[in-house]
Amino acid sequence: MWILPVMGLIIGVLIGSALTFQVPVAYVKYMSIAVLASLDSVLGGIRAIMEDLFDSTVLLTGFFANALLAALLAYLGDRLGVDLYYAAVFAFGVRLFQNLASIRHKLLLNYRHKKQRNRGEQQ
């Protein structure tokens, strides 16, 4: 059931490397924060799937809004002389690791649960 998203990832990478469009060097910083935000959204989505709380609207809006807002905030911070970039890195970084931790947690629980059930069935 994870085949389709993995294929999507591979296709996306291929498209990205096939694109001749190049991000201007001046915007690489904002791009990076957008990538971080969207990565966080994706991990949040995976976590929601694990916890049976998945909502496609929340995922898609979160994906785009987080990315755009993070980039915009970083840009605004640069214009204002406040390093909001680091705030965004920190916020999304923390959330990313939290999401990762809960995904791991959930996977572990699921695995143990399955194992116990199997054992119960055998007995």
């Binding site: 990205g16 991000v23 990565l39 994906f63």
Partner: peptide, 24 residues
């Protein structure tokens, strides 16, 4: 419920990642 949106999102993140990789 989740396969199609996740696929779309994964594809987008793939594009973003590779672009960012090149740019970096």
């Amino acid at each position: 419920r989740w396969a199609v949106p996740m696929t779309v999102v994964f594809m987008l993140i793939g594009i973003l990642l590779s672009l960012q990789f090149q740019a970096q």
